[in-house]
Computed example of a mutant assay.
Amino acid sequence: MAGLDVSAMWPDLFIELDDRHRANVRDVFATEYLTGWEPDRAAVAEVIELERGRIALSDYMKRNAARIASVPPST
Rank of each mutant, 00 (worst) to 15 (best):
A8Y: 00
A56R: 14
R67V: 05
M61T: 07
V25I: 07
D18T: 06
V71L: 12
L4M: 09
R52Q: 15
D40A: 10
P11V: 08
T75H: 03
A30H: 10
A56C: 00
T31I: 12
R26T: 06
A65F: 06
L4H: 05
E16W: 01
I48T: 03
I68G: 00
H21G: 02
A30K: 13
G3V: 03
L4R: 07
R54N: 13
P11Q: 05
V6N: 04
D12I: 00
R20H: 07
D59E: 15
A65Y: 06
P11N: 06
A23R: 13
V47Q: 11
R20S: 08
W10K: 04
A30T: 15
W37G: 01
V71G: 00
R26C: 14
A56M: 12
N24A: 14
V44S: 09
P73A: 12
A30N: 08
P11M: 10
R54V: 03
V28C: 14
A69T: 01
V44W: 04
A66F: 05
T31F: 11
L50M: 10
R52P: 00
K62Q: 10
I15W: 04
A8N: 04
L13R: 06
E38T: 15
D12T: 01
P72L: 08
H21A: 14
G53P: 03
M61N: 06
L17T: 10
N64H: 02
A2G: 07
H21C: 00
A65S: 09
D19K: 12
G36M: 11
D59V: 05
A42W: 06
D59L: 04
V44Y: 09
K62S: 03
A69G: 07
V44K: 07
D19L: 09
D12M: 05
L34H: 11
M1R: 09
A2K: 05
R22T: 14
M9S: 12
D12R: 08
R54W: 12
F14T: 09
L50D: 02
A56Y: 08
D5Q: 04
V28P: 01
